[in-house]
Amino acid sequence: MKARAFSYFRASTVEEALDAHAQGGDDARYIAGGQSLVPALALRLQAPRRLVDINHIDELRGVRREGEWLRIGALTRHCEMLTEPLIAEFAPLLRAAAPFVAHPAIRNRGTLGGSVALADPASEFPAVVLALEAEIEVAGPAGRRRVRAEDFFVDLFETALAPGELLVAVHVPLFNPGQRIAFDELARRRGDYALVGCGISATCADDLITDIRIAFFSVGNVPTRARRAESEIAGSRLSPDVIAAAQAALGEDLAPDDGDDVPAAMRLHLARVLLGRLLGQIGGAT
């Protein structure tokens, strides 16, 4: 239950962090909040020779408007999702998801960038950035680039981050008053990993849904857009028939694994139940 010995470097700039990581070769890890990494080290699931601490890099902090985007620094803690006014105004889906993320003390330390970079398939925030069509800013030896959320989550705990690249910020398109959001998850215990969870961002003209993005998590190796369900809804009013058609379409969108504790059919059923509830909220929010 103790980590293997490693060397430690506290970086104060992104460039310093990249250099320190490069010197560690394949055996270096960045540490942000550490709420997933430190248990993995304690359990020896990972045993890097070097940790590069990014907690003191000013550039990775803070939330600010940049034109039509909200730039959320990678080090923004989960608890800040609940208290930061710019998040409440321009990225309310992140705020709606935050209370479901772990427990208060974990939220005091865990970071948005860490959660997105880890890409745990049972995590809330990766699904939220997918539903928001956010862009992920990363820095690496070859320079900076922005990756669409859709292209970021590749496979189980695997992202578009190349070795040594560092997640710098998450850019979210500004929420506007014509949009509606909903978020919920089903878990056996509060704070536990979700059996299934879902975030929705919809654009409405009166009662007509002109555009809708539905992202599920805990349903497979990566957070997953329910595109067939979305197409059942877009251009329609959220009548019971439309909701039922969207729920039925989830059979084509999602292919959860068959686990001993949660059979695939049960997870799909729960996804349909959850989608029905959330669409009810979207339709009822006038």
């Binding site: 506290r10 550490g34 709420q35 359990l43 601490d53 208060p104 003390a105 005091n108």
Partner: peptide, 28 residues
């Protein structure tokens, strides 16, 4: 020692955190 039980909570700069989920060197 993996952030599940909450027995190791301390206040770090005024906020409750798990003392098992950070290395002492990080608290400098």
């Amino acid at each position: 020692e993996m952030g599940a039980c909450g027995a190791c909570l301390v206040q770090l700069d005024g906020r409750a955190v798990h003392a098992c989920l950070m290395f002492a060197v990080q608290a400098d």
